[in-house]
Design a protein around this nucleic acid. Sequence first.
DNA 1: ATTGTGTAAACTGTCAGACGAATAGCAATT
DNA 2: AATTGCTATTCGTCTGACAGTTTACACAAT
Lengths: 255, 255
Amino acid sequence: MPELNRVNGGTSTPILGRKVLRPRQQVEDALRKAVLDGQLRTGDRLPAETELARQFSVSRPTIREALSALESQGLIRKVPGAGGGSFVQAVDHTALGQVVQESMHNLLRLGSISFDEVAIVRQYLEVPAATLAATNRTDEDLEELQELLAEQKRRTVDDPMVAELDAQFHISIARMSGNRILAALVYALHRESEPVSYLDLSPEVGRDTFAQHRHIVAAIAEQDPGAAEAAITEHLTYLRGRIRKHISNQDAATV
Amino acid sequence: MPELNRVNGGTSTPILGRKVLRPRQQVEDALRKAVLDGQLRTGDRLPAETELARQFSVSRPTIREALSALESQGLIRKVPGAGGGSFVQAVDHTALGQVVQESMHNLLRLGSISFDEVAIVRQYLEVPAATLAATNRTDEDLEELQELLAEQKRRTVDDPMVAELDAQFHISIARMSGNRILAALVYALHRESEPVSYLDLSPEVGRDTFAQHRHIVAAIAEQDPGAAEAAITEHLTYLRGRIRKHISNQDAATV
DNA sequence: ATTGTGTAAACTGTCAGACGAATAGCAATT
DNA sequence: AATTGCTATTCGTCTGACAGTTTACACAAT
């Protein structure tokens, strides 16, 4: 009596019994495929929910559930009102950054990961980001960094904008690396680790970090990857010694 | 006449006009908050949809839409049937890995990012992963690596399991780093870059990479981070020169 | 010519109620 | 002990309706 399941590795592929796909799942899969295969392009408008319900021979709530899933993934955007509908979205690497940030935010809240883990991984990626930025930056990139520097120079350490400007500085460098995944990950990691918030920020530390930022920008200006790597490494090492302990953290704190 | 909007940075916080929250959004936010604040614990069962509809004074489809959003985020799991319902899930860093993998998969399909970007970032993270694994590995970790090595030794380069065993090898090392974010990111980056699939895999290359894997494991066994870093760097450098060009890729290919 | 107001149309958001599908638990039968 | 049948409880899907939102257009007022 031959076995009715074909054995493949550790799992069995049934000959007869296939897992049925529920209506909502079929609709969701079909629409996602249309988007990912390029059959639907960015900006294209999907038919109205009532029309999709007619085309797929399902009820409108089933369509709604499938569309909501695609919206959660960022593949479409829903617009109410006349001229509304579901529109295919331009999905780029910033969607990855946001999805990572949101997921890490939840995990931090749940205690599944720690700030230290976030901060350490951020540092692993900031070094190559600066190095690549030195190689790949444009003139406009450089101007932008210099403007950020000028804005930082105008601030004292008690200004609430200091943390935001620092974030913009590092996130911009990652963007200028030319590697979009690096940019997305550094964005998310930076936003979730909030390094400046945990820094013991005296006026002296403010001056030191500003000088280090200037060295980083100079290396990027000179398009010198080695100098950029050295400058960012020095900056991160300096900061590592000046972190207040996290209140909820039992381990040695790092930024 | 004072302005009715309080200006804060580039955005305005209205004094009077606040963006209204739709019923579904309120329900979703309330349930998410209950999970993230620890009011609901892993394994807890939420009330039935009809009961939640009664408690929130909304219709059941509205509850369903809110629950579906939470399920998309991995915060709950829905179970049909008697004894079913919505259960709070244990969310750990593997959820981050999956979310990143899915997002990157879509972005690759859409052409928003390239394989090279994925592969390069993976390499940036594999070096510290091996280094940390040398420091933080347990005896069980080491046994697992040695078992993976033994399994790899049994395979010839045309065996379809070679790619999977290589993936397991690298992903396991990242897990042994003890940094959960690193583990999650390396998992996703490895799964999406599929390095072995793009390798020009001759028997000689197979032997060389196996020897390199053995050096990596030896360094991890000795708990020597410097040796682990050197071994993984050598391995990645070796592989970088032996990649077939990506079919859809215009740039120089790397792994 | 420009601005403001009202209306209609077209879409999504939500509601109410019903039935189908899936599942666990329990009792009866073999 | 294993199998089958039944019941209750939940989620999944359906139908139909109304509410809310938005755009476009027509018309009146300036």
